[in-house]
Amino acid sequence: MRRRAAALAVPFSAVLLAMSSCASIPEDWKTPAFLRSDSDQMDTRLPSVTGKVGEAPKVDFEGKAPPGEQISGVAKKGSGEGALIRNDDLLQVQMVDYQWTGKGKGEQKQSSYERGAPVLLNLEEMSDDLRKNLVNQPVGSRVVFVFPGQDPEEAKAMGQPSPEPGDQVSIVDVEKRYGKGDIVDGEQTTDGGDGLPTVPDAGHGKPEITIPEDTDPPKKLKTVDLIEGDGPEVTDEQQVVVQYTGAQWSDGKIFDSTWDKGGKPFTFAVGQGQVIKGWDQGLKGKKVGSRVMLVIPPDLAYGKDAPNGAPKGTLVFVVDILGAVDSTPPPQADAGDGDKKDDKDAKKDDEKDSKNKDDEGKKDDGDK
């Protein structure tokens, strides 16, 4: 599936995003997460992080000063149920960030627990140095990262605001993993047909799509639940994790499939223009765990004469919905005085006033 916009930006901690490139981490910052001896021990310079994974962690900086270099470690190991995390997995995590301002002092900066929205973290986009404490851990693990703060002179030279003092701490709780070859459960209840393509029940791997002969494609979007999942319904702005296969109606040829790429799941945000309109419209309201056939007319795909080698005409997709998470909302601005409107309402009013002014100007010019 080709995105119609730029590559999806993972709604992740600004700290880890900024540090995810190997080149951005000076070699002398890279400190082993464990001190190797007869047994693995946590680096004692890390803050104390306690509490149940699945709930906001309790972080204690007492008696410890910011180390001024990158360190990390596993604060709590998961239960061991299910497969271990692989270095190309997509993880659903909760994320809490702190600013470690001085000895025994730390301030929470953001929490996905408080925002009510987990984060999708693509390990393949992270450096080995960052993902090493996540790989080979079971789901349910908690990992702590510490990053040195930016040098004030460096920030000034780059024209950036003066950074906060101290180091940055990120706590990552792994809730779920998605990996190559993941499938939906459930039983297929229909093959499609009745003027639409058929998809025989041949297991939950790569589907086979057969286009009906001597049949014109429908002019409107059609959706068929081949397998109906029992998860929550997909809603606008959610990050969705899927497997898919796409074929052209005109010749039945497969032009794209996650299964042909090792079965690595694909992610996108619903209703944000990151994929073709037929996906945004056809997958909204479908349940997680479903296998859905989408028959998408050209006006909701790439058009009759698709540019740049994109598939033409009516397209047929079979999409397995593996998961869906709410996108992390932006931090709320301070409300200020009680009689002030929030930014969203103020923006609407500004747009309304601007429109009224434009309309008045058009009337003066004799326009309708």
Rank of each mutant, 00 (worst) to 15 (best):
D185Y: 06
D185L: 02
Q188H: 03
Q188P: 09
Q188N: 06
T190S: 08
D194I: 04
P200G: 04
P200K: 02
D201M: 01
A202G: 13
A202F: 03
H204K: 12
H204I: 06
G205Y: 05
G205I: 03
G205A: 11
P207M: 04
E208N: 12
E208V: 12
I209A: 10
T210Q: 14
I211W: 00
D216K: 15
P218F: 05
P218S: 01
K220M: 15
L221K: 02
K222I: 06
D225K: 14
D225V: 11
L226E: 02
I227K: 12
I227G: 10
G229K: 10
D230W: 01
G231P: 03
P232E: 13
V234S: 06
T235S: 15
Q238R: 14
Q238C: 11
V241D: 00
V242W: 09
V242D: 03
Y244E: 05
Y244M: 10
Q248P: 04
W249Y: 08
D251N: 14
G252M: 06
D256E: 08
D256M: 03
S257F: 12
D260C: 07
K261Q: 12
G262W: 01
K264Y: 02
K264C: 09
P265E: 04
T267H: 14
A269E: 07
V270H: 08
V270C: 00
G273Q: 08
G273Y: 07
Q274M: 13
Q274W: 11
V275R: 12
K277H: 03
K277P: 02
Q281W: 02
G285F: 01
G285K: 15
K286H: 13
K286W: 00
K287T: 13
K287D: 04
V295C: 00
I296C: 05
P297I: 06
P298K: 03
P298W: 02
D299T: 07
A301V: 03
D305Q: 14
P307A: 09
N308A: 15
A310P: 06
K312T: 14
T314D: 06
L315H: 05
L315N: 07
F317N: 14
V318Q: 08
I321S: 11
